[in-house]
């Protein structure tokens, strides 16, 4: 009996320090946001209880839909772009398909170490109408009025940002895959080669399935990390032009800080949390075989 009690005490003494810091810092604000999401409040003065009004408003808010759409696209490019590309790059490096694989590995990893604010500055200098890329195109084509019109397209303005996200984050998944590839014995590939399997078959049918659990963890990282796109988008376009590159986090931030509509901003932040929960649960359902607990 006494033994069990002291065991429970040590159990709690291991968990509670982390748990209390976590709950103290994270849970209170989320509960506070949830409460605020049912009110109309401009950050000071009287709070007005408005029930579900803020959530109802979302359904008829075109900007919210643009943000939702762009967020879905970013999750998609994270899960189905960064991760497969990361796997492919890792495989190519692992199989030493290029000379100086180590150097390429370092170069590809570099972007992840740079803060998003800096990355945004860099790419703005590349994409802007007086930036590097339009300058190059102008001197090549002679069209002195060339600009990247994709930034002014409602449907595609988010694409260059997705490209930068791909550039920025693929490397993390590549390194994780690469490390795990090294644990797969060469003999497996050898055996497959003996049986006459092509390189594509080896990659798709043998290596990729073996790394599926790693891919799942990477997906979790990618989905929760896809909201880091806030920093990049906020500094690169601020959601503009005309809300075309809006994502939910940027819209929530502007609603709260710039428009001083704390109620609606809080409702948006609750929806963001639900969105990530849903995305992760979908991923989990898709990769049932992996037990993540």
């Amino acid at each position: 009996m006494r033994n069990l009690r002291s065991k429970k005490l040590s159990y709690l003494s291991f968990i509670l320090p982390a748990f209390l810091i976590y709950v103290g810092i994270m849970v209170f604000p989320v509960v506070f946001s949830l409460a605020l999401s049912f009110t109309k409040w401009k950050g000071f003065g009287p709070m007005e209880f408005v029930g579900l009004d803020n959530y109802v408003r979302m359904f008829s808010d075109p900007v919210f839909y643009i943000g939702l759409r762009n967020n879905i696209l970013i999750v998609l490019v994270s899960v189905f772009g960064q991760i497969p590309l990361g796997l492919l790059l890792a495989y190519m490096l692992h199989r030493k398909m290029v000379r100086g694989a180590k150097k390429f590995e370092v170069l590809i990893f570099l972007p992840i170490t740079i803060s998003s604010v800096i990355v945004a500055q860099l790419w703005n200098r590349v994409f802007s109408p007086i930036g590097i890329l339009p300058s190059i195109v102008r001197s090549l084509t002679g069209n002195s009025e060339y600009i990247m019109t994709i930034f002014e397209s409602k449907a595609y303005a988010i694409v260059p940002i997705m490209f930068v996200l791909l550039w920025q984050h693929t490397s993390l998944y590549m390194v994780i895959f690469l490390a795990n590839l090294q644990r797969i014995p060469d003999s497996i590939i050898e055996a497959a080669q003996m049986e006459g399997a092509s390189e594509g078959t080896i990659f798709l049918k043998i290596i990729a399935p073996m790394l599926a659990p790693v891919a799942f963890i990477n997906s979790i990282l990618a989905i929760s990390g896809s909201f880091k796109s806030f920093d990049l988008i906020y500094s690169m376009t601020g959601g503009g032009p005309a809300h075309y590159t809006e994502v939910m986090a940027v819209y929530m931030y502007d609603t709260t800080f710039v428009y001083q509509n704390y109620g609606y901003g809080s409702a948006l932040s609750i929806i963001i949390i639900l969105f990530i929960v849903a995305a992760i649960m979908l991923t989990r359902a898709a990769t049932k075989k992996f037990n993540f607990d």
Binding site: N124, F127, S128, P129, I130, E145
Partner: peptide
């Protein structure tokens, strides 16, 4: 207006 006026930052415009 310059091409891409909505992609130009203020300082870039008066820099031009």
């Amino acid at each position: 207006f310059p091409a891409g006026v909505n992609q130009l930052e203020g300082p870039q415009a008066w820099g031009e």
